[in-house]
Amino acid sequence: MITLPPPPLDLLRGAALFLDFDGTLVDLVATPDAAAVDDALAALMARLVVALDGRVAIVSGRPVEGVRALFGNADFTISGSHGLEIAWPDGRHDRVERPMALDRIVTRMKAFATAQTGVLVEEKPLGAALHYRNLPAAESASTDLARSLAADAGLQLQTGKMMVEVRVPGADKGTALAAMMAAPTLAGHRPVFLGDDDTDEPAMVAAAAHGGAGILVGAVRATAAAYRLRSVAETRTWLTAATERVA
Score class of each variant (00 low, 15 high):
residue 87 A to L: 06
residue 123 E to C: 04
residue 48 L to P: 00
residue 108 R to K: 12
residue 25 L to G: 05
residue 167 R to A: 15
residue 144 D to H: 11
residue 7 P to I: 04
residue 106 V to G: 08
residue 147 R to T: 15
residue 207 A to H: 02
residue 34 A to N: 13
residue 195 G to Y: 00
residue 169 P to G: 06
residue 217 V to S: 05
residue 126 L to Y: 07
residue 94 D to Y: 12
residue 158 Q to A: 09
residue 34 A to Q: 15
residue 74 A to H: 09
residue 39 D to E: 15
residue 30 A to T: 11
residue 91 G to I: 06
residue 84 L to K: 12
residue 234 E to P: 08
residue 55 R to A: 10
residue 179 A to L: 00
residue 213 A to W: 01
residue 36 A to Y: 09
residue 119 V to K: 08
residue 207 A to L: 04
residue 20 D to W: 06
residue 148 S to W: 09
residue 165 E to H: 07
residue 225 A to H: 03
residue 157 L to I: 11
residue 186 L to M: 13
residue 27 D to S: 11
residue 170 G to T: 11
residue 107 T to N: 13
residue 63 P to H: 07
residue 5 P to L: 04
residue 225 A to V: 08
residue 144 D to W: 06
residue 40 A to M: 02
residue 31 T to F: 08
residue 246 V to Y: 04
residue 62 R to G: 11
residue 89 P to D: 00
residue 61 G to I: 06
residue 163 M to E: 06
residue 207 A to Q: 07
residue 190 R to E: 00
residue 131 H to N: 13
residue 120 L to C: 09
residue 191 P to S: 05
residue 58 I to L: 13
residue 155 L to T: 07
residue 146 A to Q: 01
residue 107 T to C: 13
residue 165 E to D: 11
residue 174 G to I: 00
residue 209 A to I: 08
residue 61 G to W: 04
residue 176 A to E: 02
residue 43 A to P: 07
residue 157 L to E: 14
residue 94 D to R: 10
residue 46 A to G: 14
residue 225 A to G: 03
residue 162 M to Q: 15
residue 64 V to E: 05
residue 5 P to Q: 01
residue 79 S to M: 02
residue 143 T to P: 03
residue 21 F to A: 03
residue 224 A to T: 11
residue 41 L to Q: 06
residue 59 V to W: 06
residue 25 L to T: 03
residue 19 L to C: 06
residue 219 A to M: 02
residue 153 A to N: 10
residue 30 A to E: 15
residue 160 G to Q: 03
residue 96 V to M: 08
residue 238 W to H: 01
residue 93 H to Q: 03
residue 153 A to H: 12
residue 43 A to Y: 00
residue 145 L to V: 14
residue 126 L to Q: 09
residue 153 A to S: 14
residue 47 R to K: 12
residue 22 D to E: 01
residue 142 S to Y: 10
residue 122 E to I: 11
residue 217 V to F: 08
residue 229 L to Q: 02
residue 230 R to Y: 07
residue 213 A to Y: 00
residue 65 E to L: 10
residue 70 L to T: 08
residue 73 N to S: 15
residue 206 A to T: 05
residue 161 K to R: 15
residue 213 A to H: 02
residue 135 L to F: 11
residue 8 P to C: 00
residue 219 A to G: 06
residue 101 A to I: 07
residue 14 G to S: 05
residue 12 L to V: 01
residue 190 R to K: 13
residue 85 E to V: 10
residue 2 I to N: 12
residue 24 T to W: 03
residue 12 L to T: 09
residue 86 I to G: 04
residue 76 F to S: 00
residue 108 R to Y: 08
residue 226 A to V: 07
residue 213 A to V: 13
residue 197 D to M: 03
residue 214 G to Q: 02
residue 213 A to S: 10
residue 150 A to Q: 12
residue 10 D to N: 11
residue 247 A to Y: 10
residue 156 Q to Y: 12
residue 207 A to K: 02
residue 185 T to Q: 14
residue 44 L to H: 06
residue 88 W to C: 09
residue 231 S to C: 10
residue 118 G to P: 11
residue 221 R to C: 07
residue 23 G to K: 07
residue 73 N to E: 15
residue 56 V to M: 08
residue 20 D to Y: 01
residue 150 A to L: 03
residue 197 D to P: 12
residue 151 A to N: 13
residue 130 L to V: 14
residue 93 H to V: 05
residue 110 K to H: 14
residue 154 G to M: 13
residue 103 D to V: 09
residue 48 L to N: 03
residue 19 L to M: 05
residue 167 R to N: 12
residue 53 D to Q: 05
residue 97 E to S: 14
residue 67 V to Q: 09
residue 220 V to S: 15
residue 159 T to R: 15
residue 98 R to L: 00
residue 221 R to S: 09
residue 135 L to N: 05
